[in-house]
């Protein structure tokens, strides 16, 4: 009956999203009156595992086989399913990130467990088990009922939050049985991408306008952009004046973009500018003028001087990572 959350590590460390996952698992387990089990695969220090206990893990099952430091969805699904069967668990929860997306479908077939991917909330009902997820690329939500006895969820980032719930650290080691031929894909090489985000592909865009006053004032814009892993953009007069390159110019006569998050800093929001950015999912405007038209299309607005707002914002985001 228990709930198992798969806590993925990144080179031996967990991220905030893992804490959120554990918090969510704990919440679900309490609703079901059952135990919260956390599964960690690969080599992770005890001190790092102890952090997970702070969010309510009744037991941490650690599979610290160094062969498993490299992620393979096929092997991980095999390991997780062995643990699920051994523990008789009914619920498996993974983060909705690349690894969760790759492992969960395999696990679903192995365990014959219905999968609800990218869930957004706690279940709407436990019996039948109904839960909310995003469909049609976010243009609608669906309530999915999982009909099988075992159930798998992948949790969307930031849909639950982190809730502390300290528990005593209780680690159990587990050695899975793995056939050797399961390790067979040959990795020829790994290349690092260069860090510069391409504007058209960027999920987050930090864009600034004439309100920045001069080319020399762009450092705070660059800083915010780099802490967010974002691309930078600008309004047309900014590139016309040569403060920034033309490849950054967005709008009717520049690039048309549709990022998840668009920061319009010191940009008034002229219709020609807006034509290039109004398909953004979320727009944040920072402007000294409370009447600036940009606020009429923004989702969040801050009235203030960019030169003071930006460094503060950057610092808050950096310290929150």
């Amino acid at each position: 009956m228990s709930v198992i959350a798969f806590a993925k590590n990144w080179e031996g460390k967990f991220k905030k999203s893992t804490y959120e996952l554990v918090s969510y698992a704990k919440d679900l387990a309490s609703r079901l009156n059952t135990q919260t089990l956390i599964l960690s695969i690969g080599e992770v220090d005890e001190s790092e595992l102890n952090k997970l206990a702070q969010y309510g893990a009744d037991k941490i099952i650690s599979v610290d086989d160094s062969r498993l430091n490299i992620l393979s969805s096929r092997i991980y699904a095999e390991v997780i399913s062995q643990v699920v069967n051994k523990e008789g668990a009914s619920y498996v929860i993974l983060s909705d990130n690349n690894s969760g997306k790759a492992i969960s479908p395999r696990l679903s077939v192995k365990l014959k467990a219905g999968l609800a991917a990218a869930v957004l909330d706690v279940p709407k009902s436990l019996d039948p088990f109904i839960i909310k997820k995003r469909v049609f690329s976010g243009k609608a939500f669906a309530y999915v009922q999982i009909d099988s006895e075992k159930k798998i969820l992948t949790l969307s980032k930031n849909s639950f939050g982190i809730v502390e719930n300290p528990a005593v650290l209780n680690i159990e080691r587990f050695t899975p049985e793995l056939a050797d031929d399961i390790f067979k894909i040959k990795v020829n090489s790994v290349e690092k991408a260069d860090d510069k985000m391409i504007l058209a592909d960027a999920d987050i865009v930090v864009s600034a306008g004439r309100g920045m006053k001069a080319a020399e004032n762009w450092q705070p814009v660059e800083d915010l952009s780099s802490v967010l892993g974002a691309a930078t953009a600008c309004s047309r007069p900014v590139s016309d004046d040569g403060w920034r390159g033309h490849e950054e110019h967005v709008g009717q006569t520049g690039k048309v973009i549709a990022p998840n998050l668009y920061f319009a800093i010191g940009i008034s929001g002229a219709i020609q500018h807006v034509a290039g950015i109004n398909r953004s999912k979320c727009i944040v405007a920072i402007n000294t003028d409370p009447e600036a038209p940009i606020f009429s299309i923004a989702d969040y607005g801050v009235v203030g001087d960019a030169m003071t707002v930006l460094p503060k914002l950057t610092e808050i985001i950096r310290s929150g990572e």
């Binding site: 219905g114 999968l115 609608a140 939500f141 009922q145």
Partner: peptide, 15 residues
């Protein structure tokens, strides 16, 4: 057999 089905849809709130 399928393992799940959608019981209901909901549209996002207006901006």
């Amino acid at each position: 057999d399928s393992l799940s089905h959608i019981v209901e849809f909901e549209l996002p709130k207006a901006k």
